[in-house]
């Protein structure tokens, strides 16, 4: 997979093989975002304070965040739909992220990473080769997804820095 930046500000991911496409699309199969995990993640710190504070957060802030995350997720799904139709004769795919979609992608990639961390009990530390062998096949697949999403996010941040 190659990453490059177009003059119009788009970030281009080319030469994505069918396996990486599968790995990339898999966490997006659920078209709705599970807000329970996201709520728990935020409430870890909020509930340390006044209990009324966390109730206010649930009543007023959580619905706004859900609306924001759903809109971002929807935008990303549209770009991924275009990716799935981009197959070239050599079986490679291309993902184009326009600058106006970048913010939605950055947020959504963090959401997906959070959901993967949480669902599969994987921690964020760096692993050596031999540590990977201790993980189950599923955990290794999830780890690959986490690293792939981090890589895409890093490319988008570089695009953002370039303006």
């Amino acid at each position: 997979m190659n990453c490059s930046f177009r003059k119009d500000g788009s970030t281009l991911f080319e030469q994505i093989d069918s396996f990486l496409v599968e790995v990339l699309l898999e966490p997006f199969c659920n078209k709705r975002i599970s807000m329970d995990i996201i709520d728990d993640y935020f409430l870890q710190k909020i509930t340390k304070q006044d209990p009324l504070f966390s109730q206010d957060w649930r009543d007023y802030v959580a619905p706004e965040l859900q609306a924001l995350f759903t809109a971002c997720h929807h935008q990303v799904l549209l770009d991924l739909k275009a990716l799935s139709h981009s197959s070239s004769p050599n079986g490679h795919y291309t993902l184009i992220i326009p600058p106006e979609h970048r913010d939605a992608w950055l947020r959504t990639l963090s959401i997906i990473r959070l959901l993967l961390f949480s669902r599969h009990g994987i921690k964020g530390e760096k692993r050596e080769e031999e540590d990977l062998e201790k993980l189950s096949v599923l955990q290794r697949r999830v780890l690959l997804q986490l690293e792939l999403f981090a890589l895409i996010q890093q490319c988008l941040l570089e695009a953002e820095a370039q303006g």
Binding site: Y41, K45, I46, K48, L65, R107, S110, I111
Partner: peptide, 8 residues
């Protein structure tokens, strides 16, 4: 929080 940062 809109950027998934753990803020309070």
């Amino acid at each position: 929080q809109g950027y998934l940062l753990m803020a309070a």
